[in-house]
Design a protein around this nucleic acid. Structure first.
Length: 895
RNA sequence: GCACAUUUAGCUCAGUUGGUAGAGCACUCGCUUGACGUGCGAGUGGUCAGCGGUUCAAGUCCGUUAAUGUGCACCA
């Protein structure tokens, strides 16, 4: 047993070594014990492309705190780790890397690309896992999963086929969000709206029948080539005469109808709207209502369509392979091949030339952008796979409504309901290669569609060759199954039986829609129940100025650097402190320094305790003949157990950690350790008692702190006398009624109040600690103060101490508390005039208190309606104030 | 436009069912007190954003205003 510890705590000497002992001990590994309650957390799987950032650090610290707490409480605890294939992000990264080598996806083909992708996964996929270990994460690494591993893949196919069979997955040409950069459709949730400067271009469209010009405005003039109608409101008096008329579409000289539709708002602009069904979500709906043709003018790479595009389409139509619900393709002629902005300028120029451009009105508007690459998304009609959401949303709303799943804090339920109740069908197909390939097969000859768990090569209808859909699924489709796919579903595994449904899901508010909501409805649908009972939502970690940490700002703080500099415990402690659920927090080095200092404080307190121990000390116990101060600390400690446990159970991790901080630093270190010093300097039973209580309180407090600061608590605990292999599998302390010593707490309070008052007095008078003073104490609590003599000597620079009924006050400074008047003969230092002023000032304060309290106690409303305990409390306060008043007046009179 | 959040000491933030406010950092003064100067002791500093209401009692509940932030919607 190494009792000599370094003066300062050095995390680097400790963390990796300790983590290895935990791994070797298999403490993270979850065992199934029949009949034992389980507690499960599934990790929000980080992207394989990812590096640990502060968001991960916070998220995983919170999870580790909960898991370690529950593990010590005796649950069968499983924290299931894993990573996400992150289709768009990963594919983009690999394409980027290939571009540097001058290779494109088409050069190497699908097979070649996937080989590279898997290679990437093998090389970098484990990186973030290693980083989580640095943080101290106690995940069951034996159960690590990957969203594209065999089991998850199977679950994905199973769910897809099931939903398809139920008619909840369908394929069709719908309005989707198209990202020209990523080259894929994305879901509504993946569109982020950004405020951008733009223009309203006011255009004229000539009316065929009347020859007049209809004015309308658009932010996207280039889409006019795809216009197939102009809409007006049926009730609009300005345009009554135009019902059933047509306009001639400028530039194309094409006749398109004027339709009456509610979409046209009389209040807005001129009340006339151009309708481009293939490139605008609202227009798409108008088109459906009026059976308008759809004309596509953009390729999937965001260029204006040309002759080849049109020929391709015509070919498909001829062969019967194009779906009838897909838009026809226009050869935009001179604009073909231009990107959107170039085409816009060219078209505007031509419109202006033709006299069709009335004016340009600058505006700012919200533009939808891709959440991955932030390019403006193009609304396009495209044939994709969708999940029919309405039937799935219903049960998912119910489980939250009826409390089977609770959000912490509760306010996030509103956001959840708001989304779920207005949900639109989910576009799940992506034009990417890295991901789960859609298990749909199409007959090359007759076009038959088969959705199947196994590969289909022959058409069941005509015997022709079948080809699998080239698209992959939205990454979030597989993450949505994470809570059960990782436990073995669709197999009925023992893990699934024991650990599902899981308990707490910890995540940031930014992925409630992407992930949390989808897990809930997926679980309701496939498992018949909610995937977790609690969703603990945390906020963002921002920089010291409150800005979001981002790559472009370069203000990100690397958690690994913080760990390197201050230790993982300090980082964890910082992230857990001053953080209330759902709120953002600011991160700064100063905060980590404070945490580091706290770790050092614990280290040194422990060093002190260890210094006083012999080679063989008994494991922590409470001796029989404990002293007043022992009862005081035990009572305080007991209360701490209750508060920390309650706070953790209510997910108030920040509150729990600050209680621990206060107890350890203020109560244990600043007071109790000091109280024990006299006894530790003695020999015999007294010393043994002090040691035992020190070890007991320290050791158990370390247990309470362990979930927050796992490394240092383990390191110290191992050095202290202990039972068992590791603090992380030791038993969580329980509140113990027999450790409640209220009377003794009050007694110690009297002594401590006096010590503080004396210190205060001496500091005001600039008496150095080296100058010891005699204390003459008049009090009604003679026994307590006689007992307290030892502490006055040690903590209040006292020399000789007398407790009695009256003393000569001449030439003394008086220190007045509600329990005692203490004279310090420091005649040479006393300024009597100042002394009088000070006493008067103190008296004023007490007087004010007395007035306030007696008014309150004279208030009939208060007496009639306030709870008895509160009234009693106020009475005691008043008594104390009055006692102090008496003591003070006596003093003043004597001066 | 709708909703939600935030507004407490110079700074960053706690404040658990309503009982007249706390911490860390910063600042001031003092301290080689044999665990720790990454420390110890003492102190300065707040009409808890404004207004109104409920209540015996409001930082805490309700309404309202303002500022800031976020989500959703609109955006021809």
């Amino acid at each position: 047993m190494a009792k000599e510890l370094a003066k300062q705590y050095d995390p680097k000497m400790v963390e990796d070594r300790i983590y290895k002992t935990w791994l070797d001990g298999k403490y993270f590994h979850a065992e199934i014990n029949e009949g034992k309650p389980s507690y499960t957390i599934v990790i929000p799987p980080p992207n394989i492309t990812g590096q640990l950032h502060m968001g991960h650090a916070l998220d995983n610290t919170l999870q580790d705190i909960l898991i370690r707490f529950k593990r010590m409480q005796g649950f069968d605890t499983l924290w299931l780790p894993g990573t996400d294939h992150a289709s768009i992000a990963t594919e983009a990264k690999i394409v980027e890397a290939m571009r540097e080598d001058g290779i494109t996806k088409d050069d190497i083909g699908r097979e070649g690309f996937l080989e590279r992708a898997w290679e990437w996964k093998r090389t970098y996929g484990g990186r973030i896992i290693e980083q989580l270990k640095k943080l101290g994460a106690s995940c069951d690494w034996d159960r690590e999963r990957f969203t594209m591993d065999e089991g998850c893949n199977r679950a994905v196919i199973e769910v897809f086929v099931n939903l398809y069979d139920k008619g909840l997955i369908y394929r069709g040409a719908r309005m989707v969000n198209w990202c020209p950069t990523c080259g894929t459709s994305i879901s509504d949730a993946e569109v982020e709206y950004e405020e951008k400067d733009g223009n309203f271009w006011h255009l004229y469209y000539p009316v065929k029948e009347t020859g007049e010009f209809l004015e309308l405005a658009t932010t996207r003039p280039e889409t006019m080539l795809g216009d197939t109608a102009v809409a007006i409101n049926a009730d609009d008096p300005r345009y009554k005469h135009l019902h059933g008329c047509h306009v001639i579409l400028p530039l194309l000289n094409k006749e398109i109808p004027i339709v009456c539709d509610e979409h046209a708002d009389m209040e807005k602009g001129t009340g006339v709207v151009k309708i481009t069904p293939a490139h605008d979500p609202n227009d798409f709906e108008v088109g459906k209502r009026h059976n308008l043709p759809m004309v596509r003018i953009l390729t999937y790479s965001g260029k204006m369509t040309g002759k080849t595009d049109k020929d391709e389409y015509d070919e498909l139509i001829k062969s019967g392979k194009a779906a009838t619900d897909e838009p026809e393709v226009l050869d935009t002629g001179k604009y073909a091949g231009m990107d959107v902005l170039t085409a816009r300028m060219a078209i505007l120029k031509d419109l202006e030339k033709g006299g069709f451009l009335k004016e340009i009105e600058p505006i700012t508007h919200q533009v939808g952008t891709c959440y991955r690459c932030h390019t403006a998304i193009e609304p396009m009609v495209s044939r994709q796979w969708f999940v029919k959401m309405e039937p799935l949303a219903k049960p998912a709303i119910d489980v939250v409504k009826n409390g089977e799943t609770k959000f912490v804090p509760e306010r996030f339920e509103k956001i959840y309901f708001n989304w779920m109740e207005n949900i639109k069908d989910w576009c799940i197909s992506r034009q990417l290669w890295w991901g789960h390939r859609i298990p749909a097969y199409y007959c090359d000859d007759c076009g038959e569609i088969v959705v199947s768990r196994v590969e289909e090569h022959t058409c069941p209808k005509c015997g022709g060759n079948m080809t699998q859909d080239p698209d992959t699924l939205d990454t979030w489709f597989s993450s949505a199954l994470w809570p059960f796919s990782t436990l073995g579903w669709p197999e009925k595994t023992a893990d699934l039986e024991h650990f599902f449904p899981t308990n707490t899901l910890v995540t940031g508010y930014d992925i409630i829609f992407f992930w949390v909501a989808r897990m809930i409805f997926s679980s309701c649908e496939n498992m018949g129940e909610t995937p977790f009972d609690t969703v603990l939502i945390h906020g963002l970690v921002r920089d010291a100025q409150g800005r979001k940490m981002s790559k472009s700002l370069g203000n990100g703080i690397d958690p690994l650097e913080i760990i390197e500099k201050y230790g993982a415990d300090a980082l964890r402690f910082t992230l857990a402190t001053g953080n209330s659920p759902g709120n953002d927090m600011r991160f700064s080095d100063e905060k980590v320094e404070a945490s580091r200092n706290f770790a050092n404080k614990i280290w040194n307190a422990s060093r002190f305790v260890l210094m006083n121990l012999n080679e063989k000390e008994p494991v922590p116990y409470i001796p029989d003949n404990i002293a007043l101060e022992d009862k005081w600390i035990l009572s305080k400690y007991n209360n701490l157990v209750k508060e920390v446990t309650d706070s953790l159970e209510r997910y108030e991790l920040g509150l729990a950690v600050s209680k621990l901080y206060d107890f350890i630093w203020d109560i244990f270190c600043d007071w109790y350790i000091e109280f024990t010093k006299t006894r530790l300097n003695s020999e015999g039973e007294e010393k043994e008692t002090a040691k035992a209580v020190l070890v007991y309180v320290l050791s158990n407090t370390l247990k309470l702190l362990h979930p927050f600061m796992p490394f240092i608590t383990e390191e110290i605990w191992q050095t202290l006398p202990h039972d068992g292999e590791s603090i992380m599998i030791s038993e969580w302390p329980k509140f113990d009624e027999s450790l409640n010593f209220e009377a003794e707490e009050t007694e110690m309070q009297r002594i401590m109040e006096a010590i503080k008052a004396i210190r205060n007095r001496r500091a005001e008078m600039n008496v150095p600690p080296s100058r010891k003073a005699q204390l003459n104490i008049i009090t009604d609590y003679a026994d307590t103060f006689n007992y307290g003599k030892q502490f006055f000597v040690k903590l209040a620079s006292a020399a000789e101490i007398n407790v009695g009924n009256s003393f000569e006050s001449e030439g003394s400074v008086a220190v007045v508390t509600s329990d005692a008047t203490i004279y310090m003969p420091l005649a040479d230092l006393v300024d009597f005039e100042a002394e009088r002023k000070r006493l008067q000032k103190e008296l004023d304060v007490v007087n004010k208190d007395i007035t306030m309290l007696s008014n309150k106690l004279a208030n009939e409303g208060f007496l009639a309606k306030a709870p008895a305990a509160v009234i009693e409390g106020e009475k005691i306060k008043l008594e104390k104030a009055q006692e102090k008043f008496t003591n003070l007046t006596a003093q003043l009179e004597k001066l």
